[in-house]
Amino acid sequence: MKITPVEELFTLLNETADILREELDCTYLEALAETGENIFQESILQEELSELTIKRLKKSYESLHLDKFTNEDLRKSFQLAILKGMKESVQPNHQMTPDSIGMLVGYLVDKFVQKDAFSLLDPAVGTGNLLTTVMNHQNGKTVDAIGSEVDDLLIKLAYINANMQKHPIRFFNQDSLEPLFINEVDAVISDLPVGYYPNDIRAADYELKADEGHSYAHHLFIEQSLRHVKPSGYLFFIVPNGLFESEQSPKLHEYLKNHAIIQGLLHLPLSLFKNEQAAKSIFIIQKKGKEVKPPKQALLVNLPSLSKANEVDKILKQVSGWIKENKG
């Protein structure tokens, strides 16, 4: 049975990561970052390896020809290896946006951002999977991308992910709610980190800080994103369905009314999530600007199961029609 390019590359990443994990006595994800860097640099960078290990790795790497893989093959195989590593890791913040959602966000960015070249920010970039999925679905457009991430290991994986796909992305290893020293961008995407933000002093700089107790990180991320997008720029957030049901939501509602226009809300199918509490939606807003007019009616969609291709196709046609009507 012929194996797919994704399986072929995953097997190589997995085998070489296992070899390095054993020899370096590190986690699978750390070993994956090491082997990814070796592949990109076309040399074995770890100095403490035995001769036998170096021989085994060389043999594997020499059988690999990256040029024959598409960006999506590279991304998917790397994603599979990361998912394997995340199953072993107990850190709750190591979550990855499912592929089907990433492709959907990519489709929406392509339709809404009607520019041949644009800048894009992901302030919670993680392993770079959502950002590179979106970049891979921009039809012939040039994307100048920025990713920010507080977790050292995740950003290392994101950087290798970008290098393997030859995406020029600038990465910042920092808490994205601290000042971001970047120019304003045309669009923002983010699978928002949900929960309380522990740094109350930092949160005090935000309009959306809680009146008492810890503030919601996802609210602060929305405000930080709006600060860093150009007037009329679009923002695409993956948000919990209960975004406007918390005790802090009236403040968020008021803030959005003052600074943005809600363009749409796409409820993702429940089948993608463990339970109803974990369910999410794609929330599309536009920063206020001179030419920006609210849509006659916001785009409200309940997405069918993403495995039902015909139904999804119908919905995407509806989305496309709505954009033509409202975006001229």
Results as ranks from 00 to 15, higher is better:
residue 9 L to Y: 05
residue 325 E to I: 07
residue 289 G to Q: 13
residue 324 K to L: 11
residue 305 S to T: 14
residue 189 I to P: 06
residue 294 P to W: 04
residue 95 Q to L: 14
residue 276 E to I: 11
residue 175 D to S: 03
residue 262 I to W: 13
residue 68 K to C: 03
residue 136 N to M: 15
residue 260 A to C: 09
residue 242 G to E: 07
residue 220 L to D: 09
residue 323 I to V: 12
residue 101 I to M: 04
residue 142 T to A: 12
residue 101 I to F: 11
residue 181 F to W: 11
residue 73 D to W: 01
residue 230 K to N: 05
residue 273 F to Y: 08
residue 311 E to G: 04
residue 250 P to T: 06
residue 189 I to C: 06
residue 30 E to V: 01
residue 320 S to V: 09
residue 63 S to C: 06
residue 198 P to K: 01
residue 81 A to H: 02
residue 159 Y to Q: 11
residue 232 S to R: 08
residue 298 A to K: 13
residue 63 S to M: 12
residue 26 C to L: 11
residue 261 I to M: 09
residue 130 L to C: 11
residue 236 F to C: 01
residue 317 K to S: 11
residue 10 F to N: 10
residue 238 I to T: 09
residue 292 V to G: 08
residue 198 P to R: 00
residue 136 N to Q: 14
residue 54 I to Y: 14
residue 231 P to A: 14
residue 241 N to P: 09
residue 61 Y to C: 01
residue 303 L to H: 03
residue 172 F to C: 02
residue 262 I to H: 12
residue 124 A to H: 04
residue 34 E to C: 07
residue 92 P to H: 05
residue 15 E to G: 09
residue 167 H to I: 14
residue 246 S to V: 13
residue 156 K to F: 02
residue 57 L to S: 05
residue 28 Y to H: 07
residue 115 K to V: 04
residue 157 L to A: 01
residue 302 N to G: 08
residue 174 Q to Y: 09
residue 84 K to Q: 06
residue 259 H to I: 08
residue 44 I to G: 05
residue 45 L to K: 00
residue 36 G to A: 06
residue 213 G to R: 04
